[in-house]
Design a protein around this nucleic acid. Structure first.
Length: 588
RNA sequence: GGGGACGUAGCUCAAUUGGUUAGAGUACCGGACUGUCGAUCCGGUGGUUGCGGGUUCGAUUCCCGUCGUCCUCGCCA
């Protein structure tokens, strides 16, 4: 049907008779001659309808409108002098149409795929087929394909086997909320869509598939974000007879190949590693953005000397006084601007306030609270913060947790507002040595930071009995530009150790048996030491494509209310279907 | 569940302190034009200002509710 694509023809094709197919991007009718920019996913080619091509064709071409699907046959010709348009790769040539075939008309599209004004996202999602015609979307989806292809090839070379695991599985109450699927055959029973293939892949290790990967669809019924969809894709991986270093090495190889082939960047390996504790101390978060500095600086010791009650009280009560130096920002943030930052940390992160100083030309610290500090102490603070004239110093005095959250968010916000980094740069790092446990806010007991099968570091095993809080897991997160791109752990393959962890988590034997007895049983039948990792593919594509929203790298994403604007899902179902499932809908 | 932004023509946006017939660009329809490429020029159609209620002589504008999209806190082992 077609001989070439709309991005293919060059000078060397001049004189050839070719057939192009595509969508009418724009048309320019000059009465005696009519131009159409014909578009397909490979590019745009100008096709020309002129009397020499036959009056019938010219007449028919006058009926063409945006997004009509046409096929044109004719000779490739050099463009007349002065009419070359190098905005398009085909801009040196044009197609002189001899035969036009309208393959399909189009209703007037809600928006033009190549229009400069991008419509609202609801419109884009409702007419996703039009939106997906946009070159940006097509480039992103092709990029996504290329990245997945690179990953599959890489892991294939490394002897990994891709194995599919079920979509219909068992619900596990830990972790995120499950998407549930009622069983028709067994009324009152439910499957859960997988949050990850975690348990299956561990069982595959027991089964001897020592190098497993899967590009796995995963589901989590939690609220959405710019970088979070209820349905997403993970590059899921598990290996046997390995250490954490082996897994990190394999992933670094994959990431380096992506960086090289997609971005043309030569990554220096191994990637830097930072412990969880260090990340929390220096950045207030376990996925710090290392593209810029403005680190958190601790002043708790100095705060104890302060007259200022907020500082001293917090320090004496075991809290922390930490701050950041927004270098050169004193002028940019007026009193009102700082008030805005204050309510930002107070309203969102529970900080009680935001203390601030502006560094004046003579190096002195100016602030409404400055009178509560001795000149000597101000000098010490200034030195600690590395303050220079024009700097804005911001402090949060609170519990460690609140100071982390507030200052992390503040650092992120200020860095964006002050343009502290080039959005094109890419920064890769590992965060390691995560705590095994975190306090569960609801129950007050211990909860697994990652999941209950995570192995502690061997040297920390005694801490399980004495001081679980200090116990560190063999866990590692890949962080790209301050975004968690993936995370993994070495798993427990020892029954006794697993039991001990369950005990700490308050999972009694019966519960454990009920929920994942099959895994515990499998571990008894010759489980090799193993571990793995999962990378968020959507997020990876988003980061590599330099996009701000995960929806822009997913063909058919959901809105914040988890609806599909195009299909209308979720929707009502027939009463009969409900009845067959043996369930009742409480409210309609 | 909480906080915030937005919602006006098919699309992107405007509309003075609350003021009379809600405008512009683009798309669409008609006309002119043989080298344009965001074509140009002339003319035209197109509006339940998301929806419901309230205040007012008068509401796109103010208030309440509701629906939708986005950002965010909680949540996301």
């Amino acid at each position: 049907m077609r001989s070439h694509t709309c991005g293919q023809l060059r000078r060397e094709h001049i004189g050839q008779t070719v057939t192009l197919c595509g969508w009418v991007d724009t048309y320019r009718d000059h009465s005696g001659v009519l131009f159409v920019d014909l578009r397909d996913r490979y590019g745009i080619t100008q096709v020309v309808f002129a009397p020499e091509g036959g009056d019938d064709n010219l007449t028919a071409a006058k009926g063409l409108r945006s997004e009509f699907v046409i096929s044109v046959t004719g000779k490739v010709a050099a463009r007349p002098e002065g009419t070359v348009n190098m905005k398009h790769s085909t801009g040196e040539i044009e197609l002189r149409v001899e035969k036009l075939q309208i393959l399909n008309k189009s209703a007037t599209p809600p928006f033009q795929p190549t229009s400069k004004d991008l419509p609202g996202e609801d419109i884009r999602l409702k007419y996703r087929y039009v939106d997906l015609r946009r070159p940006e979307m097509q480039n992103t989806l092709v990029l996504r394909h290329r990245m997945i292809k690179i990953l599959r090839d890489y892991f294939d070379e490394q002897n990994f086997v891709e194995i599919e695991t079920p979509m219909l599985g068992r619900s596990t109450p830990e972790g995120a909320r499950d998407y549930l699927v009622p069983s028709r055959v067994q009324n009152g029973m439910f499957y859960a869509l997988p949050q990850s293939p975690q348990l299956y892949k561990q069982i595959l290790m027991v089964a001897g598939y020592d190098r497993y990967i899967q590009l796995a669809k995963c589901f989590r019924d939690e609220d959405l974000r710019a970088d979070r969809q209820p349905e997403f894709t993970q590059l899921d991986l598990e290996m046997s007879f390995i250490t954490m270093e082996d897994i990190i090495g394999v992933i670094e190889g994959a990431v380096a190949r992506l960086a090289k082939q997609i971005l043309g960047i030569e990554l220096t390996l191994p990637l830097p590693q930072m412990t969880y504790d260090e990340a929390m101390e220096r950045f207030g978060h376990d996925a710090p953005d290392l593209r810029f500095g403005m680190e958190l600086i601790d002043l708790t010791d100095l705060a104890k000397e302060a007259e200022f009650k907020v500082f001293r009280g917090t320090a004496d009560a075991g809290g922390r006084v930490r701050g950041i130096n927004a270098s050169g920002a004193a002028e940019k943030y007026s009193r009102k601007g700082i008030d805005e930052l204050t309510s930002f940390v107070v309203e969102n992160f529970g900080a009680k306030g935001l203390a601030w100083f502006k560094v004046e030309a003579d190096g002195k610290l100016a602030s409404p609270i400055a009178k509560n500090f001795s000149p000597e102490l101000l000098a010490k603070i200034s030195e600690r913060m590395g303050a220079k004239p024009g700097d804005l110093l911001l402090f949060v005095a609170d519990s460690f947790e609140v100071s982390c959250k507030a200052l992390y968010a503040l650092r992120k916000r200020l860095a964006a507002e002050l343009k502290l980094y080039d959005p094109k740069t890419m920064n890769f790092s590992w965060i390691v040595e995560f705590p095994m446990f975190a306090k569960d806010a609801e129950t007050g007991g211990w909860a697994a930071m990652h999941h209950p099968f995570t192995s502690p570091r061997m040297q920390d095993v005694p801490l399980l009995d004495t001081d679980p809080e200090k116990c560190r897991a063999i866990a590692y997160d890949l962080v790209i530009n301050g975004s968690e791109a993936g995370g993994g752990t070495i798993r427990i393959h020892d029954q006794e150790l697993q039991q001990k962890v369950f005990d700490l988590l308050g999972i009694d034997r019966e519960t454990a048996k009920e929920r994942f007895g099959f895994l515990l049983e499998a571990l008894q039948f010759g489980a090799p030491p193993h571990g793995g990792i999962a990378l968020g593919v959507d997020r990876l594509v988003m980061l590599f494509a330099g996009l701000d929203s995960i929806r822009d790298c997913i063909a058919f994403p959901k809105t914040q209310r988890a609806t599909d604007m195009m299909t209308g899902a979720p929707g009502l179902v027939d009463a009969k279907q409900i009845q067959e499932l043996g369930i009742k809908v409480a409210k309609q």
